[in-house]
Design a protein around this nucleic acid. Structure first.
Lengths: 155, 155
DNA sequence: TTATCTGCAAATAATTTGCAGTCTT
DNA sequence: AAGACTGCAAATTATTTGCAGATAA
């Protein structure tokens, strides 16, 4: 996992403080969990990972923390069709780590890809612009995900 | 709401029977609810609408029916970020009614658009092809949604 | 006839919330 | 000190499931 600029502790702490919020052991543990344990973690998975460094942490705190980070734009919350939210560090369009997801509907494996990102980003940008004009929306985000069967499950 | 070929009762019934399943009053009521009450209904909304014609219907039946129709490809199930699934008749890419969603994160209004559908569809098709080759996925669906604030909520 | 379908009530499972005490700043 | 943050337990909410009876084919 490459270490993107958004993901290092110093930057995250600055951001949190910038919003007038506090740095706590629980929040550190969540940040660590998110950067150490790869992408697209469920709240439960973040909880398990964070518990290792900080055994007293509670699941409710995980939820509150992830919600907060999501609100700050540090984290993306998304859903892949099972009924658990998933979380990962956010990389805005254009950032090195920006990617979309390819989801296996059978084994729930999630593949990050960024092979067509430039083309996609460009079209999405134009679409956003067009939609904003026509419908008067102020668009903040989009979700693009592909669903199918991975090689193993397709057999 | 235009009446697409996929949405008329005769075609739906044929499809259901084609899968070896039965036509029942409950299923009729769900079909009616979906075509009469517009798009992107929650299970609860389908339930209310269907209850009007068929008061004895139960919510569990709504869920089971919608799941079945989704499995048959007659209905799309999707999610707009609140934690309720939403359902609408499916129009495959290329069909007249094919569209994507623009969601207001404040008032939860959902706008259907198909302004850039051709371009989008074309890029998505190419992307699917590329991803299928590179990652060995057999891709079945995609989700593309834009999130932002509608005109009223942006004030 | 017979497998599918149903409503109901109870069970799940993810997420949220109230609260009293504990920290960060 | 003051407000932000916490863990815990209880509450919520959407969805699922078991079951015995009803019904479409």
């Amino acid at each position: 996992m490459p270490q993107h600029k958004n993901h290092n502790p110093a930057c995250c702490c600055r951001k949190i403080r910038g919003f007038g919020r506090r740095i706590t052991p629980a929040r550190h543990a969540v940040l660590d969990a998110l950067s150490a344990r790869g992408e697209h973690l469920t709240a439960e998975e973040v909880f398990k990972a964070a518990s290792r460094h900080y055994p007293d942490i509670g699941l409710a705190t995980i939820y509150r923390t992830l919600e907060l980070f999501t609100k700050f734009g540090m984290v993306n919350k998304f859903d892949t069709g099972d009924d658990k939210a998933r979380y990962e560090f956010a990389d805005g369009p254009g950032a090195k780590g920006h990617h979309h997801h390819l989801v296996c509907t059978s084994c729930r494996r999630i593949v990050d890809y960024n092979d067509f990102i430039n083309e996609e980003t460009e079209l999405l940008r134009r679409t956003e612009e067009g939609l904003a004009n026509k419908y008067g929306f102020k668009i903040n985000t989009h979700i693009l995900q592909f669903y199918g069967l991975c090689k193993d499950c397709a057999k």
